[in-house]
Nucleic acid binder design. Structure first.
Length: 219
DNA sequence: TTGCGCGTGCGCTATCCCGT
DNA sequence: ACGGGATAGCGCACGCGCAA
């Protein structure tokens, strides 16, 4: 098997606190740092990433010491900038990827809205000051993502417990408790409700049917 | 159908090359 | 000589083919 696009290995110098936070987040999500960066690149428009503040390089005193464990220089200490290393498709700039990872951290901290302008950016028109700008490109991306990741509505509707588990995204045979069930339903309902920007009447209807079946089964 | 071996790709870590 | 960036190498996961 050969790949058409070779991945490139990026070295991203950053403050040790930033590196630790990113690695903690990756560990918490059970993914690697590259996955975090790719996720942000997938769902956040490039213009937003470009505008996001760059966490920047480590300061002059922020250095890590590495002791070589083998080779001719075994035992020799190396001082270098704290860094993150990721393998991704070529063509990205280090600052851009550092911003992307900063967005991942911001989202994890609950900052679910990303402003399209920074303090240094040219002043916005008076009527737009202090408001988030809705990027049409972002809306299209999000709709595509929701469409791809959502379950395919069942042609014959939700007729069995297995169908219900499928619609709610649980593996076959799983017996979710009431709290897990309600939490999953609420999350999916906010996405598929016809009033939502990404809503779908058919999916919402099948969600309700699935919930009914599982609630009856749990009773 | 299952188990085994092989090949390939990828992530992570450590090392080494080269510019300053 | 030092230190940053690039990459080599190791180990793991997964897909595929084949045999039992």
């Amino acid at each position: 098997m050969t790949q058409d696009i070779k991945k490139h290995s990026y070295t991203i110098p950053c403050a040790s606190t930033f590196r630790d936070a990113v690695m903690d987040l990756a560990a918490k999500r059970r993914v690697n740092v590259g996955d975090l960066a790719r996720s942000v690149l997938l769902v956040v428009p490039q213009s937003v990433i470009d505008e996001f503040p760059d966490p920047g390089e480590p300061d002059q005193h922020d250095r890590e010491t590495v002791i070589l464990k083998s080779g001719t220089a075994k035992g020799r200490p190396w001082r270098r900038k704290p860094r993150l290393q990721v393998r991704m498709a070529p063509g990205f700039e280090v600052e851009f990827m550092r911003r992307a990872l900063a967005i991942a951290l911001a989202l994890d901290h609950g900052e679910t809205r990303v402003l399209l302008h920074s303090e240094e950016a040219p002043p916005a028109p008076p009527e737009a000051t202090g408001r988030e700008v809705v990027d049409p490109e972002e809306i299209v991306r999000l709709r595509t993502i929701v469409s791809v990741l959502s379950f395919d509505p069942l042609n014959d509707g939700v007729r069995s417990r297995e169908d219900a588990l499928y619609v709610l995204g649980f593996p076959p045979g799983r017996i979710p408790d009431g709290e897990t069930l309600r939490a999953r339903f609420r999350m999916l309902a906010t996405i598929h409700h016809p009033d939502s920007p990404h809503g779908d009447h058919r999916r919402m209807s099948q969600l309700n049917s699935a919930m009914d079946i599982l609630k009856r089964g749990a009773a």
